[in-house]
Design a protein around this nucleic acid. Structure first.
Lengths: 107, 107
DNA sequence: ATCTTAAGCAACCTCCAGGTTGCATATTAG
DNA sequence: CTAATATGCAACCTGGAGGTTGCTTAAGAT
């Protein structure tokens, strides 16, 4: 296991796009889909979808497995768990700040 | 209260940048900071920092209040709570998929 | 009244994200 | 074997993100 980088920004950035968010929405249901399948219903080109999938893959949100002539993509939960933890720490800091303020006012 | 948009992508996008993430990290501690203060220690220009702050402000993660000649920025938790909920729903879908798979294998 | 500090505004630059088209290659179907 | 399907690769285009510099205006400090 290599040092897991302390930078969540790329993961947030990967989620910062409607198209990719809907890919995630589809894939987190557990099913695996080929690129062509994921392109169905989208108004974008297969190549555009491919690029988006590569972005998601580059931050580990998604993984591809070649199966015959198609490459099937599947969801990987870890990166999203990672940023959830990060957001929790942000909320926690904020809550602590609030409670410090509260006790300051009360005394 | 106007229809809260169903699109979290812009919030994720706003967090998808190291500089903005560190601004959030600083501000979620509860203190308010002026633009100049937030620029201190950064290698970027005040104007660059200003632009980043406007991005955060545009999605509601941050709010600015003019105080004399300086405008002080403060953290606003709601948008981040929003995407936390979104991520929870993603995890939930994933977990349900896993448990369906599990019961399918077991029978 | 003047100097200094905080911010806003605007023009400008560079680079890359997001899309497209066109063509090549690998598999599966008939 | 041949046709059709699923991808990969590469070149190309365009707009906007992220930065900078320069100048102006507002508000404190002396």
């Amino acid at each position: 296991m290599v040092a897991k980088r302390r930078t969540r920004a790329p993961v947030f950035a990967a989620l910062g796009d409607e198209t990719r968010l809907s890919l995630v929405a589809k894939l987190c249901g557990g099913q695996r889909y080929s690129i062509s399948q994921l392109t169905q219903g989208s108004k974008l080109t297969r190549q555009a979808i491919t690029k988006h999938l590569r972005v998601l893959e580059s931050v580990g949100i998604v993984r591809s497995v070649r199966k015959g002539r198609e490459s099937r993509f599947e969801f990987v939960p870890q990166p999203i768990e990672g940023i959830k933890e990060y957001l929790d720490s942000v909320s926690e800091q904020w809550d602590q700040a609030l409670s410090r303020l509260k006790s300051f006012v009360e005394e």
